[in-house]
Nucleic acid binder design. Structure first.
Lengths: 205, 205
DNA sequence: ATAAAGTTTAACAATATTGTTAAATAATGT
DNA sequence: ACATTATTTAACAATATTGTTAAACTTTAT
């Protein structure tokens, strides 16, 4: 081999991704990652120097995944009544494939809120401008008399609550409702159809 | 002193409560707890043998707090249209005082879903019977034509999403919306009034 | 005043975890 | 074939973390 094998690097990153996202930084062990990748600890350091460096790569990646999609939809010029279904559809689809991402990203942000601001700007998503766009759209609809009075942050956090919480508390509700993996995904699938209607009915005048 | 000083025990538990609930088990250090309590590590072990034992006490306590309140309301014979505001009011009030509890409890459950089932039964809350009561109430309202078709789990998870997520992602949204502690609590206070209406409008026929 | 329990200090042991290294072996490109 | 890179092994160092202990000191109850 002339260069570091790309597939091994990916193999390790896949393992790191799995361990970090399911356990979080503090509970994750380098040995967990090595075992998951089917290799030894020495090779982890051979490829990625330290735990922190590996974590940064994975976190950066998941962070982007988590914010960019919604950010683009929210910032677009799509009408409000299309944005809501678009966000729901996007979130439930991507999170169904990566259910542990929200707990991971939000959990690590909670531990280190300071580092968060710089990072979100790096994603190309400006919370303030997005918030402003949404506010204008809500204002417009309110003046048309199509929706009740509600402010941007409230609506946004309602949408995100309904989309994200079921994944954050997935293990909890699986036990409560006695659902296995497949049942829960069907449950989520059903929500895709219901949720937009629920939200829109909740704000409609 | 003739017996172990009750106030010191409480002092330590208060510290443990704070450190465990903000950092989680894996990231919490016995030394963090000692410093927080203004004492030394030796005394922690003098009072509570091990980290695991201390954690069990705190987790058990927070676990109850987290489930018992909603459990009692849900299991009561209150009409559906009163239950919803009651839950919202109860959750937002208690969580405003203990914002880190949801992330703590849900996070630790996610790491150990197996242990969860036994524990929730110990609280005296039976998920199945609660779920059944709710289902019956929804059925009844649906037949009266007051609400749209929705199943128990969906409604329940909608309510809990809207109530709990804002605390789980509190640090995140504080940064996004540039709110300090006080602003965020005002924001939550406002939601108390809005949220019940939002949910009820979302399910009303 | 004395005994008992609380608390601190400081040192220590035990273990867990991360990170490093050298040597041996395997695989690969040229 | 050869040099280069990849990988494993195994040992090790460095540090972090938990848990234990003995001795000294402090506070409190009686």
């Amino acid at each position: 081999m002339t260069k570091i094998d790309k597939t091994t690097e990916e193999l390790i990153l896949n393992a790191a991704r799995k361990i970090f996202t399911t356990k979080g930084f503090a509970a994750a062990r380098m040995d967990d990652i090595a075992k998951e990748a089917g290799i030894n600890r020495a090779l982890l350091h051979y490829y990625f120097r330290s735990k922190d460096k590996m974590f940064d790569i994975i976190f950066e990646e998941k962070f982007r995944e988590f914010f960019m999609g919604v950010g683009l939809i929210l910032g677009s010029d799509m009408p409000l009544f299309e944005k809501i279904p678009a966000i729901i559809e996007h979130e439930l689809t991507t999170l169904a494939k990566h259910p542990d991402v929200p707990m991971f990203v939000i959990g690590e942000i909670s531990q280190n809120p300071e580092k968060f601001l710089q990072r979100i700007q790096g994603v190309g998503v400006n919370p303030k401008s997005i918030s402003h766009i949404l506010d204008k759209q809500i204002q417009a609809e309110y003046k048309k008399g199509t929706i009740k009075k509600i402010d941007g942050p409230s609506l946004l956090i309602n949408i995100m609550s309904l989309a994200i919480y079921p994944f954050i508390a997935k293990n909890l509700w699986q036990v409560v409702f006695e659902m296995d993996e497949h049942d829960y995904l069907k449950f989520i699938e059903k929500r895709k159809k219901e949720l937009s209607a629920f939200i829109i009915d909740g704000i409609r005048a």
